[in-house]
């Protein structure tokens, strides 16, 4: 594998590359890879392919007259040149801005964005000084996103990791299918927030709409205001001391700590009544039907 150069790989077809790199196509269903950690592994904090960027090296991109693809490609090129802070001017509601950034970066967007802004991130810190449309931060793996105003529906859809913060209010289905990470909402959230949530945490400082946490499988939702109604299998649970410490830390960190503290926050979790994942279920259902 080490004998193949990058130039040689580039000249190959995908199939040839796979073979040359010694990758297998066998099915691993039901088996584990049995990979073990190396306790003496080197201390490294970034992916091997991540560009070396300096947070103190700053530049701007004017989005006016550019397509989304051009702006996003421009961000990548500037990161390759070592820029660690990039400011986007005049976004004017463009969709899919700043998506797929897979290493550290400070990205500042001076204005509002359309739908699917800053999705698929793995590492950057983003500040949006405006509003965002649907599905901001969807599928984020790690990093932080701070929105200064309000956000649309499906905020943080399928979020996997990192912190997604909105100082204002957000639409419905916030954190739908959330698989990890933390969503913080300074204002209210709409109906069906936390729908089919699987893990992660959601903090709503204001009120929550109808059917909060409907069909959630796991994860935790903290609500500081009123909950219009809980969804199927969402139940209230007592907060632990660790929950209170974590909530206090998180809200203080983003300057969103309510004046009356966090003691009034309700904690919502899955009742686990919908956990039907065992082998006998199909045969039992057949018997019933």
């Amino acid at each position: 594998m080490a004998s193949v150069t990058d130039a040689e790989l580039k000249a190959m077809t995908q199939e040839e590359r796979v073979t040359a790199l010694g990758m297998r196509t066998e099915q691993l269903t039901g088996k584990s890879l049995h990979v073990e950690f190396d306790p003496d592994a080197e201390e490294r904090f970034e992916y091997p392919w991540a560009p070396e960027v300096d947070f103190n090296k700053r530049t701007e991109i004017d989005c006016d007259g550019k397509t989304t693809t051009e702006v996003n490609s421009n961000i990548r090129s500037l990161m390759e040149e070592g820029y660690g802070t990039i400011v986007l001017q005049n976004p004017r509601g463009m969709h899919s801005l700043g998506v797929g950034i897979l290493s550290k970066l400070n990205l500042i967007i001076e204005g509002s964005t359309g739908y699917f802004a800053v999705g698929l991130l793995d590492g950057p810190n983003v500040r949006i000084n405006g509003r965002v449309g649907w599905s901001c931060g969807e599928n984020m793996m790690s990093g932080t996103i701070m929105i200064e105003k309000n956000a649309g529906s499906t905020f943080g859809a399928a979020l996997r990791g990192g912190d997604l913060v909105c100082r204002g209010s957000v639409g419905s289905r916030t954190g739908i299918d959330q698989k990890g990470g933390t969503i913080v909402v300074g204002g209210d959230t709409g109906a069906l927030s936390g729908f089919m949530m699987q893990r992660g945490r959601m903090v709503v400082c204001g009120n929550a709409g109808k059917n909060l946490g409907d069909s959630m499988y796991d994860g935790t939702i903290f609500v500081g205001g009123e909950i219009q109604s809980l969804g199927v299998d969402a139940v209230e649970e007592e907060k632990t001391e660790l929950d209170v410490a974590w909530l206090t830390r998180k809200l203080t960190q983003y300057g969103m700590m309510p004046e009356k503290g966090v003691d009034h926050f309700k904690k919502i979790v899955a009742g686990k009544m919908l956990w039907n994942y065992d082998n006998l279920e199909p045969s039992e259902k057949k018997l019933i039907l």
Binding site: R199, L242, R249, Q253
Partner: peptide
């Protein structure tokens, strides 16, 4: 899966990782 971290137990390596990434907590 819902256990939140106890930041009193954080290790020097993880603190360094947070600083490198510009995060104030363990993030993901």
């Amino acid at each position: 899966v819902n256990l939140v971290p106890d930041y009193n137990r954080i290790t020097p390596f993880l603190t360094k990782y947070m600083e490198t990434m510009g995060w104030d907590d363990l993030n993901w």
